[in-house]
Amino acid sequence: MGEKASRQVVVLACSGIGKTWGALARETALELVERVRPGVATTACLPLLVINDPDARCLVMEHPVITLDGCPKACARKSVEALGKKVDHPVESIQFYTAHRELKPEGVAQLNAAGLKLAQVAANELAAIVDRLAAGGQT
């Protein structure tokens, strides 16, 4: 049994509550963690990194990390980089809409049906990245 095969991948989403893209990032992360790759993809509260919580810091430092940001300010990616860790696969949620323009997300508190569908599609597409990182590869 290889250690690499059981490695968890940390998926960190933007915490923004002001934009649809933040809501899409969050929903995509939860799709990965709960539906697409449960047990392999895991998440943590991004604000824990802001206060330098030791458990969250340890999780991020010891596992491959995918960040899902909702805007170019890239809070999720920068929060990881502030710890001195390079993000393995940084993503901006808008890129999924660019690739699937038929699914236009709307809403901030709750995504509309198209937004929820786009999050499913995005998580499905990220599954291969999760698998590669879990197996010890690079993206």
Partner: peptide, 12 residues
């Protein structure tokens, strides 16, 4: 107004 917490360390 909302203040985005992670922006505190992301250069906000």
């Amino acid at each position: 107004v909302a203040i985005c917490l992670p922006l505190f360390i992301a250069g906000g």
